[in-house]
Simulated scan of single mutants.
Amino acid sequence: MSMVEKVARALCNIEVGEGGCDAIMADGSAQWQAYIPDVITVLKAMRKPTPAMVDAGAQLCDAAYSGKAVHAAWQAMIDAALDGEG
């Protein structure tokens, strides 16, 4: 399951309740799929980490990694999620 699907199902579960998100809508898609545009918007907004996020990541990494490397790694992870790889 991709990250986009995982988050879309989570948002659907908040609104519809557990188990209701696999219901088929009039257009033939599962109900959770209606949340995909919202998930993509949120992931795009998260693509640029805050300085505090970069600092937190840098503290967990070897000293060889700079804030720029942590920033790039975060963006690569978000990009993978947006591309359906994550």
Rank of each mutant, 00 (worst) to 15 (best):
L60P: 01
G84W: 05
A76L: 05
C12T: 07
A63K: 11
E18W: 03
C21G: 10
A26W: 01
A34V: 08
A64I: 13
A58K: 15
L82N: 14
M77I: 03
A45R: 07
A64Q: 13
P37M: 02
C21D: 06
Q31G: 02
Q31F: 05
V7C: 11
G57M: 03
A69H: 12
A64R: 14
Q33S: 07
Q75T: 12
M25E: 12
R47M: 06
K48M: 06
A52L: 04
A45Y: 00
D22C: 00
Y35K: 05
A69I: 12
V7M: 15
A56H: 02
G17M: 01
P49L: 02
M53F: 00
R9M: 15
A81N: 13
P51V: 00
L60D: 08
A8S: 10
I40C: 03
V16Y: 07
S66V: 07
A64K: 14
A8Q: 07
C12K: 04
K6E: 09
A80V: 02
C21Y: 07
A10R: 10
A76F: 05
L82P: 15
E5A: 14
A63T: 11
P49W: 00
D83M: 07
L82I: 05
G86F: 11
A72R: 09
C12F: 03
L82W: 08
D22A: 02
A64S: 13
V16A: 13
E15M: 04
Q31W: 03
M77D: 14
W74L: 09
A64W: 13
A63Y: 06
D27L: 02
G57A: 02
K44A: 09
A63W: 06
R47E: 05
Q59L: 08
P49H: 01
A30R: 10
M25H: 06
S29T: 12
A56R: 08
T50N: 01
T41Y: 01
D55H: 02
S29H: 05
A8W: 03
R9C: 10
G28C: 01
I14D: 12
G20K: 03
S66C: 08
I24Q: 03
R9K: 15
A81Q: 12
S2K: 11
D38K: 14
E18T: 06
E85S: 09
I24P: 00
R47N: 06
V54E: 05
V42Q: 09
K68W: 08
A45E: 10
A23D: 14
D83T: 05
G67C: 04
W74E: 10
A30E: 14
T41Q: 06
A64T: 14
T41N: 07
A76S: 12
V42I: 06
K44M: 07
K6M: 15
M1V: 12
M46P: 01
A30Q: 12
L11D: 12
G84H: 04
V7A: 14
R9Y: 06
A52W: 01
I14R: 11
D55F: 01
M53N: 05
G20S: 04
A26C: 00
R47H: 09
P51N: 03
V16S: 11
E18S: 07
E18A: 14
R47I: 01
D83F: 03
M46R: 14
M25K: 11
A73N: 06
K44V: 08
A58Q: 15
Q31H: 04
K48V: 07
P49Y: 00
A64C: 10
